[in-house]
């Protein structure tokens, strides 16, 4: 399938080295130009929020909550910086990579990731309502600590692709049916 990413400029924000290399590798194979800092003409942006496996909200302190919240702020800042260019060009792809615990809280879930991840999904809906009409899509990949970084990156690449242009405000969960929620 031709993803139509050749020569597209993709802003990649990901603190984890393994995840970043996997994502940059898949996108480069598709011919995209991956940049890691602010760039004027970004066609697509992906922000990975950190995963905290088996995190507990009851054991979290205020400092933890504030640090988690910085993830939401990073998404807002990135979207703000790239949306004017995408809007004027009439094409854009926004993708976040979140914890699968936004869908259901099973044993050993990333509870802290659920809180900030749900804030990001709420933000996605608002962004879709505002900018979907300009050919900009906003979607999320959900993962957990079992997820393969390359599979996550392939799902990111698909969401950024030309053929995925009618997906708006959706989540693609890579959990191999481990979670128990119906939807």
């Amino acid at each position: 399938m031709d993803l139509g990413l050749h020569d597209r400029v993709v802003l990649l924000e990901c603190a984890d080295e393994t995840d970043r290399q996997a994502c940059a590798g898949v996108l480069s194979t598709e011919g995209a130009r991956v940049v890691t800092s602010e760039h004027r003409d970004v066609d697509a942006a992906v922000v990975y929020l950190p995963l905290v496996p088996a995190s507990s909200l009851l054991e979290a302190g205020l400092a933890d909550l504030r640090r988690d919240w910085l993830g939401l702020e990073a998404v807002v800042t990135t979207f703000q910086s790239v949306l004017p260019g995408m809007t004027s060009r009439g094409w854009g792809r926004l993708v976040t990579v979140l914890s699968g615990s936004v869908k259901s809280l099973d044993d050993e879930s990333d509870e802290r990731g659920a809180v900030v991840g749900l804030a990001v999904l709420g933000l996605h809906k608002a962004v879709v309502a505002d900018v979907a009409r300009y050919g900009i899509t906003t979607n999320a990949v959900l993962r957990d600590d079992h997820s393969d970084p390359t599979e996550v990156a392939e799902a990111v690449a698909f969401l950024m692709s030309e053929p995925a242009g009618y997906l708006q405000g959706v989540t693609l969960a890579l959990d191999g049916a481990r979670r128990s929620s119906v939807f």
Partner: peptide, 27 residues
């Protein structure tokens, strides 16, 4: 556009995606 999503789900690349209900609806 809907068919492209089905092709990705059917692909080798989509092997970890299962049990999902995915909207293809423009938002």
């Amino acid at each position: 556009e809907l068919a492209a999503v089905v092709a990705f789900l059917a692909s080798e690349r989509g092997r970890a995606i299962t049990g999902q209900s995915i909207p293809v609806d423009g938002g």
